[in-house]
Simulated scan of single mutants.
Amino acid sequence: MDLIKTDQYGRQIGYVQGANIDFEVGADEADSINDFEIELKRWNWDGSIRYGTRVFSPDTEYGGIVREISTDTSTNVIRAKGDTWRGMMTKKIIQPLSGQDYATASGELNSIIKSKIEAEYPGLFYGVTADTGVTVNNYQFDRYCTLHAGLVKMLKSVGYRLDIRYQEGDVGMAGYVKVSAVPINDLSSEYELTNDNNMNFITDDNRRGINHLICLGKGDLKDRLVIHLYADQNGTISQTQQYFKGAEEIAAIYDSSGSERDDLIKNGIKELESKKSSMSYNMTMTKLEGNIDLGDIVGGKDYLTGISMKKPIGRKIWTISSGKEKVVYKLEGET
């Protein structure tokens, strides 16, 4: 892939050459940086990259606007940094209307995206008019969530994901960021990644987690509020013991003295979620063929132990270092 630079007005002025490049894009704000860094030796710095310069790889999500420039004379390097297009969306907040508890949205997916991003980034971000055929009715955003997190969660609730791509402008004209909704692809059967593919991964199928949580709330002794929560073989939590019994039952206490029933159940579920049996899977993938993007689902299997699972792509990291290019894919939740 090539990285193109522009002037401060978004008009292309050439390629970024002789640089080390590091772009990270991710769907989950908790474990994704969503920024970029371009490192040049001082003798390769020609001053064409300035504050406000756009850098982008055409028709991909890799791109952003330079907002920080640092220099280090001890190592003879200059670094240009900024947020990616997705990262910029994490710096806008969806706010409830005055007098309302929550911000809401109704309508077709792309029409909602278009109205929100074009209002926040006029002349730079554009939605699309294509109709997905999918609508939401009075969708409730989390209070004061970021524009990015709100749209990602809304789309995920109906099996869609954000697609972000920089589109080149005509000769002498600025390009723009195109944002749209596309279906999440479950490619776990098509892309089953194993150690035979030279993919490095670590699995941990932990089945010794808590499956019965006894939650203790307000009151004393026999008058104390007690709620029993159970996790079944699929990890689903309820107040009915349906699966693990006898020797298979693993119990623990959650002490929340003073808690009323609703709070005790809410916090008890959160506690059991963190302590129930779980599968963790960390994988480093440096090459995936085909059209796979953030949010799409891939599978993995260790044929020796039989451990398998499927998970969404959570992050992509594009680097060029000493002329060598690499794209690393990380699963959702990986550090």
Score class of each variant (00 low, 15 high):
Ile297Phe: 06
Glu289Asn: 15
Gly300Tyr: 00
Val298Gly: 03
Lys311Tyr: 02
Ile317Gly: 04
Lys310Pro: 00
Glu325Lys: 14
Lys301Gly: 04
Gly333Lys: 08
Arg315Leu: 03
Gly323Met: 09
Lys316Ser: 10
Asp302Gly: 09
Gly314Val: 10
Lys301Arg: 12
Val298Pro: 00
Ile307Ser: 08
Ile317Ala: 03
Ser322Trp: 06
Glu332Tyr: 11
Asn291Val: 15
Lys326Met: 06
Lys316Cys: 07
Gly323Asn: 09
Ile297Thr: 13
Ile307Cys: 06
Tyr303Asn: 05
Lys316Trp: 08
Val328Leu: 06
Trp318Ile: 01
Ile317Ser: 02
Val327Gly: 00
Thr319Tyr: 05
Ile297Ser: 10
Lys310Asn: 05
Asp296Lys: 05
Gly300Phe: 02
Glu325Met: 12
Lys301Gln: 05
Glu325Asp: 14
Asn291Arg: 15
Asp293Gln: 14
Met309Leu: 02
Ile292Met: 13
Asp296Leu: 08
Ser308Ala: 07
Lys326Pro: 02
Leu294Arg: 11
Ser321Leu: 10
Ile313Phe: 03
Ile320Ala: 08
Ile320Phe: 06
Val298Phe: 01
Pro312Asp: 10
Gly333Val: 03
Tyr329Gly: 06
Val298Trp: 03
Gly295Ser: 13
Gly299Ser: 07
Gly300Lys: 05
Ser321Ala: 13
Glu289Trp: 14
Ser321Asp: 13
Pro312Val: 10
Ile292Phe: 14
Gly299His: 02
Asp302Ser: 09
Ser321Arg: 12
Asp296Ser: 13
Lys310Arg: 06
Val328Asn: 02
Gly323Val: 06
Tyr303Leu: 07
Gly299Leu: 06
Leu331Phe: 09
Ile317Val: 13
Lys301Thr: 03
Thr305Val: 04
Lys316Phe: 09
Val328Asp: 02
Glu289Gly: 14
Asp296Pro: 14
Lys330Ser: 01
Glu289Ile: 14
Lys330Thr: 03
Gly300Glu: 02
Glu334Ala: 05
Asn291Ile: 14
Gly314Asp: 10
Gly306Thr: 04
Gly299Asn: 03
Val298Asp: 00
Arg315Ile: 03
Asp293Asn: 15
Gly314Trp: 12
Gly290Trp: 12
Thr305Gln: 05
Asn291Gln: 15
Gly306Glu: 02
Pro312Cys: 08
Glu325Gln: 15
Asp293Gly: 14
Ile297Asn: 11
Ile320Tyr: 07
Ser308Cys: 03
Gly295Asp: 11
Ile307Gly: 04
Asn291Leu: 15
Glu334Tyr: 08
Ser322Glu: 09
Gly333Glu: 04
Lys324Pro: 09
Met309Asp: 01
Lys324Ile: 09
Leu304Ala: 09
Gly300Asp: 04
Ile297Gln: 11
Gly299Trp: 01
Pro312Ala: 08
Trp318His: 12
Gly300His: 01
Thr319Val: 07
Ser321Pro: 05
Leu304Pro: 02
Asp293Pro: 01
Ile313Leu: 05
Gly295Cys: 13
Ser322Val: 08
Tyr329Thr: 07
Gly314Ile: 09
Tyr329Phe: 14
Ile313Ala: 01
Gly299Met: 05
Glu325Tyr: 12
Ile292Ala: 13
Gly306Lys: 04
